[in-house]
């Protein structure tokens, strides 16, 4: 039995007097992949934002390496990569500048060789010096995956990561998650369609939202 690294303890979230979800509990060990499933409006993204520490739950707690994430926010932030349903890409910078920007923001040292290998892997090398506002949705998604590679953190929180990706892109994503998983990282996916991963996924099923 492995020590759980991420423990989610009885999380409830209330929005305008109705519970979006109640008493969600889960504990994840090294190499776990968790799928948060549910219909539209069931609170997948909200739960993911809570797990990222962007939103506070009504009640319940989350701990990372046995420490509450609100008390030790700095460690948690350093170990965490959040990819929301927007990509977090600056539209008026080029692909290159975006990656450089991300390095500066997270304090990673900028190495051109690493950047080159990553963009080659994700096949966005042809648009390296193009402003991202000219990129297609799929290319933007690939760029946001590039950030995952740039900064290999322990915990990935991905919101609908497969959106806008073509089959090749999806395969890339699956490979990425598998690699992350075998390296002992934890992945949490908020998606209504399961990814065809080889590993077994844990799953949280959110019910349909209360309609008042």
């Amino acid at each position: 039995m492995q020590q759980p690294i991420l423990t989610i303890n009885e999380i409830s979230f209330e929005r305008n007097n109705t519970f979006l979800f109640e008493n969600i509990s889960c504990s994840l060990v090294k190499g776990d992949v968790l799928q948060i499933a549910g219909t539209n409006g069931s609170g997948k993204s909200t739960l993911l934002r809570i797990l990222a520490g962007l939103l506070e739950p009504e009640s319940g707690s989350i701990s990372w390496k046995n420490k509450c994430i609100y008390e030790d926010a700095e460690t948690y932030k350093r170990d965490l990569h959040f990819l929301g349903h927007q990509n977090g890409i600056k539209m008026h910078l080029t692909v290159h500048e975006n990656l450089k920007h991300y390095c500066a923001l997270t304090g990673i040292t900028y190495k051109p060789s690493t950047i080159n290998s990553i963009i080659n892997k994700l096949k966005i090398d042809s648009v390296f010096n193009t402003q991202t506002s000219y990129l297609s949705a799929g290319q933007l998604r690939r760029l946001s995956l590039a950030k995952l590679l740039l900064n290999p953190q322990r915990l990935w929180l991905l919101d609908e990561p497969a959106t806008a990706l073509d089959s090749e892109g999806q395969q890339l994503l699956i490979d990425l998650i598998s690699q992350h998983q075998s390296a002992g990282g934890i992945t949490i996916l908020a998606t209504h369609q399961p990814l065809p991963l080889t590993v077994t996924m844990k799953k949280i099923q959110l019910g349909s939202a209360y309609v008042s």
Binding site: K77, F82, T106, G107
Partner: peptide, 17 residues
Amino acid sequence: RNDVHEGYLDLILLSST
């Protein structure tokens, strides 16, 4: 304004800087 639309705000909120 743009930072919100682009999801960039989440990024800086979660940045270790």
